[in-house]
Design a protein around this nucleic acid. Sequence first.
DNA 1: TGGTTTTCCTAAAACGGTTTAGTAAGTTTG
DNA 2: CAAACTTACTAAACCGTTTTAGGAAAACCA
Lengths: 343, 343
Amino acid sequence: MKKKTVSIKTIAANLNISVTTVSFVLNGKAKEKHISKELTQKVLDYAKAVNYKPNQIAQSLRTGKSKILVFMVEDISNSFFSKLARIIEDIAYDKGYKVIFCSNENDDEKSIDLISLFKNRQVDGFIIVPSPGIKSTIEELIEENIPVVLLDRYFAGLDCNSVVIDNEEATFNATTHLIQNQFKNIGFITTDSDQTQMKDRLLGYEKAIINNGLKPQILKIPYNETSDGKAKTFIKNFMVEAKDLDAVFFATNYLTQTGLEFFKETDPQLIQDLGIITFDDNELFKIYSPTITAVSQPLVEISNELMKLLLPLLKRKDIKEEPTKNILLQAELKIRESSGSKV
Amino acid sequence: MKKKTVSIKTIAANLNISVTTVSFVLNGKAKEKHISKELTQKVLDYAKAVNYKPNQIAQSLRTGKSKILVFMVEDISNSFFSKLARIIEDIAYDKGYKVIFCSNENDDEKSIDLISLFKNRQVDGFIIVPSPGIKSTIEELIEENIPVVLLDRYFAGLDCNSVVIDNEEATFNATTHLIQNQFKNIGFITTDSDQTQMKDRLLGYEKAIINNGLKPQILKIPYNETSDGKAKTFIKNFMVEAKDLDAVFFATNYLTQTGLEFFKETDPQLIQDLGIITFDDNELFKIYSPTITAVSQPLVEISNELMKLLLPLLKRKDIKEEPTKNILLQAELKIRESSGSKV
DNA sequence: TGGTTTTCCTAAAACGGTTTAGTAAGTTTG
DNA sequence: CAAACTTACTAAACCGTTTTAGGAAAACCA
């Protein structure tokens, strides 16, 4: 039923030579180890003939390298992350690495569990969208000489590679754009997170608002209450309390979804009348009515930079030989109908 | 720098006992192997104290089990698949399995490469959304006693576990719904794929159309031309040739996106005037204007059934001991504004 | 000619576990 | 009291590689 798989040992036995020789040849060390041309060719031909594929597990055990990377995000079903995953997958496979994706739900315990799990599996490197409280866990990884690159957010005072976008600049520009289009009362709907990406987004908004002598109107939804039902109540109350809003800026994609859903349910006309900008683009925003202006993160660039940081680390004996880099990328404001002047 | 990891060997040495004993205890075989209560406890305590975590690679090499599953889909960035991934991830982790996701782009060569790659990595099982020409590859997997469950589509005449939805019934119902709402000229926009899921969707549409004495109007876009630009041209020509259409049914989610985008660009009013139904739901469809009627696949149910098929196989020495099952699930028609009567 | 290199190849250890096949005591049994 | 179990533990093989440390023969050198 199960035909036995060919191993180096069977090759060696069948050719009447030692496994060492076979291993050398198959690893391209024939020259270096003075294996004769003829024998080298014989081994290569035979290996091909029997379709020999090395057992990666055995290789991993011996070398300590698994050729597996971990891509840990908040939620792989969130389109921002799944789009990134798709690109990273391609680059990694191209370089001979497989990728395990996992979702930490921005939860510390889950993150820590997952990281520990994967360390025992000897993964070669991590790309992590870190939950708020795992600074020390990341630090440990680095001390243990395991390659890590942070994504989307980082920890102040932690010397770790990272790729993030210029969130402050992005929301500053987007808010300014709204203001230039005559919006005077721009609400900012965000989570109450302390993480850098959210703090910076808020900062950019506030800066633009203050710069223009306007009044900030901010709704911070507790992170654990962002599930659909609850978030809607927060938004509802916010819209009432700050009732003269003429525009809203959603600081992250799932809030946009909830917000639009709330508008649609209670007062669809709002979607036409309000200025709307959202963080994170979505294919459907350009076919919405009105089309929705969005801060679009450069997915391909982010992925490329991530791998450009990670790959050299994977080659190093000591990751400290590679200088840590913090890459800051610019987001693009996709100006569409929803942020157009309504007056 | 790198504190050495504790292995069974170090535990054994430090407690002055054999690795065998340690292994037995840690694998819960203390009773069965007559290890005394005291020693058992001593080992457990010590292992905990030094935070021993078994090296999964070594375990895998010896046992042949990697505790890794592969979830191979067409494109992990497609929301249908990433949503499934998220649910499957949770179930799998709960059962002690990690999941590697990969995208085969519905391409045979890529699928075959990936499968071969993962076999060498001793993955324990596969969930596969198969590309059209890998029937024999799947067959080989089964012959080699490797657990596989097919998803979304299957191969006629191949005895392999599968979870698919009743595509024919779904499009039949959806089309009938349009007809009941007075639409008389319903176009069906699909790919020219021969795969079961697409064939069945077309079948359901045709059946409903014929049943009601209407005329089928079908656009089959060549699969390799579904990239944005080209697909739009096909749709454009279709809309001209079949110019009296009063409704369109998109057979899969990326076609919907392209179609709506085309409408939006050329004649936004069409989106209001045409009856529209799409296969595969999206959170944004319920906040679109009009809200879009969609055939919604039961993601949680699909995931549960997949794992219900896969998990027992993973336990078997011989997968043939487990009867193969073909699960057929019903999709749900989410009736929204876009399919409402326009007369 | 004898010593040194070079060429060609291999035995055996190692990676970190699991598992088979024991052994040496103590305990029952007939 | 000897035979047969039971209990408590372990040595060693094994999974499939990589890699270190050599060995024997051939080639080179002085």
